[in-house]
């Protein structure tokens, strides 16, 4: 058969012939069509669908990513607020110390709060007594003294008027200058006539210098035993009060805390001090000085220069806190 005829034969037989797909191919084609329809269903259903985001999402985006600057601004404001708060604190501290007589000419006074933080559940009893008593009061009274004799006598009268738990002796040689002495019995005193110690338990230690002298005037919360009225109470001589105090302080678990100006003294201090209100006339020049110092420190603070607490408030450059518990003595000097 000629080749042309052969070509024609195949062309005629198969050129228009349609072979039906097999079952397997049919299934595969159906799957593809089904898959395409499935894809189209999701594409059309979700392609242009919009979900509504929560409003907070934009605020978060703005705050956290787009405009975080306001936070920095808030930080600056916070810094100024902190500075203002620090200034106010300094002013209050200076005012409180002045009111308590610290800024006066008196070389010594009782300040309990800056040096001693009250222990939870414990009461604080501040006792001032004679320096010589330090040797005799082995139970650990807290003693400080630096006043001249006439001042001590004055303060003695005041103490006996206002607080029966304090005793002052005037025959003491001043030594180092303790600012305050505080004794903290862990157990409440049970001596009946140490009423003001009960009274003292009801309050926290005060920053004011007149703590010792004014405990009798403190208000007592309801439910606390009422101490005898100080003005009507018979005045006991110091020599009679001292044993009572010793008896009161007799329990062994007593913490003594001494606060002194300057570094730790070479020898142990054992002087008593009772703070009295300074005379306003004597304080006048010093107060002006303190106000100037305070303003100067405020200027330093504004300009970012170092601030001296001692210059601003008239506090000494350093304080020494000495605590005695039983036979152990711990001393620490704080640079202001």
């Amino acid at each position: 058969m000629p080749s042309d005829n052969l070509d024609d034969l195949f062309r005629q037989q198969l050129g228009q012939h349609a072979t039906p797909p097999g079952a397997d191919l049919q299934r595969r084609l159906a799957e593809l069509a089904e898959a395409e329809r499935l894809d189209n269903l999701f594409r059309t259903g979700l392609g242009s669908h919009a979900s509504q985001p929560r409003r907070e999402l934009w605020e978060r985006l703005e705050d956290e990513h787009l405009h975080p600057e306001p936070r920095r601004r808030r930080g600056v404001v916070a810094w100024w607020q902190l500075s203002a708060a620090a200034m106010l604190l300094l002013a209050l501290l200076a005012g409180g110390l002045w009111r308590g007589g610290y800024l006066g000419q008196r070389p010594a006074l009782a300040v309990s709060k800056p040096a001693v933080r009250p222990a939870a559940g414990s009461s604080a009893v501040a006792v001032a007594t004679s320096a010589g008593a330090a040797a005799t009061t082995a139970s650990g009274q807290l003693i400080s003294n630096s006043l001249p004799t006439n001042t001590i006598a004055q303060s003695e009268n005041k103490v006996q008027e206002k607080s029966t738990s304090q005793a002052t002796a005037s025959r003491l040689a001043p030594s180092s200058i303790p600012i305050a002495t505080t004794t903290r019995p862990r157990r409440p005193a049970t001596v009946p006539h140490a009423a003001s110690s009960i009274q003292a338990k009801t309050r926290r230690p005060d920053a004011a210098a007149g703590v010792l002298a004014t405990t009798g005037k403190r208000t007592i919360p309801a439910g606390q035993p009422q101490p005898p009225t100080p003005p009507e109470a018979p005045e006991l001589p110091a020599s009679r009060q001292l044993p009572a105090l010793i008896a009161m302080m007799a329990p062994p678990d007593i913490i003594e805390v001494d606060v002194r100006r300057g570094p730790a003294p070479a020898r142990p201090a054992a002087q008593a001090v009772v703070a009295t209100a300074p005379s306003p006339a004597a304080d006048q020049p010093r107060r002006r000085l303190r106000l100037g110092g305070l303003l100067r420190q405020a200027d330093h603070l504004v300009h970012g220069e170092p601030v001296s607490l001692a210059e601003a408030t008239g506090l000494p450059e350093s304080l020494t806190v000495q605590a005695r518990l039983g036979g152990r003595t711990v001393s620490r000097t704080i640079q202001l």
């Binding site: 919009a50 979900s51 999402l57 934009w58 985006l61 703005e62």
Partner: peptide
């Protein structure tokens, strides 16, 4: 403008 762009596309993009 940032808010406008966000509002324009946030719904679509959340889906």
């Amino acid at each position: 403008a940032q808010r406008h762009l966000y509002n324009q596309f946030a719904g679509l993009m959340l889906t």
